[in-house]
Measured scan of single mutants.
Amino acid sequence: MGMPNRKYADGEVVMGRWPGSVLYYEVQVTSYDDASHLYTVKYKDGTELALKESDIRLQS
């Protein structure tokens, strides 16, 4: 078993793309699913969504 190939840690605050949009919002990573390679993130309004790594970026 190798290390999970994840870029962002639980609790890390990053920018997540809103689905169907080009806009990124501040989100907190809450979990990562090794099987689906999706991150569960929480937006400031409390919305929780699963995002692909390509829809997440570090805060500038």
Rank of each mutant, 00 (worst) to 15 (best):
residue 1 M to F: 04
residue 1 M to K: 12
residue 1 M to I: 14
residue 1 M to N: 15
residue 1 M to W: 03
residue 2 G to L: 08
residue 2 G to T: 08
residue 2 G to F: 05
residue 3 M to S: 15
residue 3 M to W: 12
residue 3 M to H: 15
residue 3 M to A: 15
residue 3 M to Y: 14
residue 3 M to F: 12
residue 4 P to K: 08
residue 4 P to E: 12
residue 4 P to R: 04
residue 4 P to S: 10
residue 4 P to Y: 08
residue 4 P to T: 10
residue 4 P to G: 15
residue 4 P to H: 12
residue 5 N to V: 13
residue 6 R to K: 05
residue 6 R to Q: 08
residue 6 R to F: 03
residue 6 R to W: 03
residue 6 R to L: 02
residue 6 R to E: 02
residue 6 R to S: 03
residue 7 K to L: 12
residue 7 K to Y: 05
residue 7 K to D: 02
residue 7 K to P: 03
residue 7 K to G: 03
residue 7 K to I: 10
residue 8 Y to Q: 01
residue 8 Y to S: 01
residue 8 Y to D: 01
residue 8 Y to R: 01
residue 8 Y to G: 01
residue 8 Y to V: 02
residue 9 A to T: 08
residue 9 A to V: 08
residue 9 A to E: 09
residue 9 A to R: 11
residue 9 A to F: 10
residue 9 A to N: 09
residue 10 D to T: 09
residue 10 D to N: 11
residue 10 D to G: 03
residue 10 D to F: 04
residue 10 D to C: 06
residue 10 D to Y: 05
residue 11 G to H: 05
residue 11 G to A: 04
residue 11 G to Q: 04
residue 11 G to T: 03
residue 11 G to V: 01
residue 12 E to L: 10
residue 12 E to M: 14
residue 12 E to Y: 04
residue 12 E to K: 06
residue 13 V to T: 11
residue 13 V to K: 09
residue 13 V to E: 05
residue 13 V to L: 12
residue 13 V to M: 13
residue 14 V to W: 01
residue 14 V to K: 01
residue 15 M to S: 05
residue 15 M to R: 06
residue 15 M to D: 05
residue 15 M to V: 05
residue 16 G to Q: 02
residue 16 G to M: 10
residue 16 G to E: 00
residue 16 G to I: 15
residue 16 G to H: 03
residue 16 G to Y: 07
residue 17 R to G: 02
residue 17 R to E: 01
residue 17 R to Y: 02
residue 17 R to Q: 05
residue 17 R to T: 03
residue 18 W to P: 10
residue 18 W to A: 09
residue 18 W to M: 09
residue 19 P to V: 03
residue 19 P to R: 14
residue 19 P to C: 06
residue 19 P to F: 06
residue 19 P to T: 04
residue 19 P to H: 06
residue 20 G to P: 09
residue 20 G to Q: 06
residue 20 G to F: 07
residue 20 G to E: 06
residue 20 G to H: 07
residue 20 G to I: 02
residue 20 G to V: 02
residue 21 S to C: 08
residue 21 S to V: 04
residue 21 S to Y: 04
residue 21 S to I: 03
residue 21 S to M: 06
residue 21 S to N: 06
residue 22 V to T: 14
residue 22 V to W: 13
residue 22 V to L: 14
residue 22 V to N: 15
residue 22 V to M: 14
residue 23 L to E: 12
residue 23 L to K: 11
residue 23 L to R: 11
residue 23 L to V: 12
residue 23 L to I: 13
residue 23 L to P: 02
residue 24 Y to T: 02
residue 24 Y to C: 04
residue 24 Y to W: 15
residue 24 Y to K: 01
residue 25 Y to A: 07
residue 25 Y to L: 11
residue 25 Y to E: 08
residue 25 Y to N: 04
residue 25 Y to K: 10
residue 25 Y to C: 12
residue 25 Y to H: 09
residue 26 E to Y: 10
residue 26 E to M: 12
residue 26 E to H: 08
residue 26 E to K: 11
residue 27 V to H: 01
residue 27 V to C: 15
residue 27 V to L: 08
residue 27 V to M: 13
residue 27 V to K: 00
residue 27 V to I: 05
residue 27 V to T: 03
residue 28 Q to W: 09
residue 28 Q to E: 12
residue 29 V to E: 00
residue 29 V to R: 00
residue 29 V to P: 00
residue 29 V to S: 00
residue 30 T to R: 08
residue 30 T to K: 13
residue 31 S to L: 04
residue 31 S to T: 07
residue 31 S to M: 07
residue 32 Y to G: 00
residue 32 Y to E: 00
residue 32 Y to R: 01
residue 32 Y to V: 01
residue 32 Y to Q: 00
residue 32 Y to N: 00
residue 32 Y to W: 09
residue 33 D to T: 03
residue 33 D to F: 02
residue 33 D to M: 03
residue 34 D to E: 14
residue 34 D to M: 08
residue 34 D to A: 11
residue 34 D to W: 09
residue 34 D to K: 08
residue 35 A to Q: 13
residue 35 A to F: 11
residue 35 A to C: 10
residue 35 A to N: 12
residue 35 A to K: 13
residue 36 S to P: 01
residue 36 S to D: 06
residue 37 H to S: 12
residue 37 H to I: 03
residue 38 L to S: 07
residue 38 L to E: 08
residue 38 L to R: 08
residue 38 L to K: 07
residue 38 L to G: 02
residue 38 L to C: 08
residue 38 L to M: 13
residue 39 Y to H: 00
residue 39 Y to L: 01
residue 39 Y to M: 01
residue 39 Y to S: 00
residue 39 Y to E: 00
residue 39 Y to I: 01
residue 39 Y to R: 00
residue 40 T to W: 14
residue 40 T to V: 10
residue 40 T to K: 10
residue 40 T to H: 11
residue 41 V to D: 00
residue 41 V to Q: 01
residue 41 V to T: 02
residue 41 V to S: 01
residue 41 V to F: 01
residue 41 V to G: 02
residue 42 K to W: 06
residue 42 K to S: 07
residue 42 K to H: 06
residue 42 K to G: 02
residue 43 Y to H: 09
residue 43 Y to S: 10
residue 43 Y to E: 02
residue 43 Y to F: 13
residue 43 Y to D: 08
residue 44 K to L: 10
residue 44 K to F: 10
residue 44 K to H: 11
residue 44 K to N: 07
residue 44 K to S: 11
residue 45 D to T: 05
residue 45 D to K: 02
residue 46 G to E: 05
residue 46 G to L: 04
residue 46 G to A: 04
residue 46 G to W: 03
residue 46 G to D: 05
residue 46 G to Y: 03
residue 47 T to D: 03
residue 47 T to G: 04
residue 47 T to R: 11
residue 47 T to A: 06
residue 48 E to Y: 14
residue 48 E to S: 11
residue 49 L to K: 07
residue 49 L to W: 15
residue 49 L to P: 00
residue 49 L to R: 09
residue 49 L to M: 11
residue 49 L to Y: 15
residue 50 A to G: 07
residue 50 A to L: 15
residue 50 A to V: 14
residue 51 L to Q: 02
residue 51 L to F: 02
residue 51 L to P: 00
residue 51 L to W: 03
residue 51 L to G: 00
residue 52 K to P: 13
residue 52 K to E: 11
residue 52 K to W: 08
residue 52 K to D: 09
residue 53 E to N: 04
residue 53 E to W: 05
residue 54 S to H: 10
residue 54 S to Y: 08
residue 54 S to P: 05
residue 54 S to Q: 11
residue 54 S to M: 09
residue 54 S to F: 08
residue 55 D to W: 05
residue 55 D to L: 03
residue 55 D to R: 02
residue 55 D to Q: 07
residue 56 I to S: 01
residue 56 I to L: 12
residue 56 I to P: 02
residue 56 I to G: 01
residue 56 I to Q: 01
residue 57 R to V: 10
residue 57 R to M: 14
residue 57 R to N: 06
residue 57 R to I: 11
residue 57 R to P: 02
residue 57 R to Y: 12
residue 57 R to W: 11
residue 57 R to H: 09
residue 58 L to D: 12
residue 58 L to P: 15
residue 58 L to C: 12
residue 58 L to G: 13
residue 58 L to A: 15
residue 58 L to M: 13
residue 59 Q to S: 13
residue 59 Q to A: 14
residue 59 Q to K: 15
residue 59 Q to E: 10
residue 60 S to C: 14
residue 60 S to I: 12
residue 60 S to T: 13
residue 60 S to R: 08
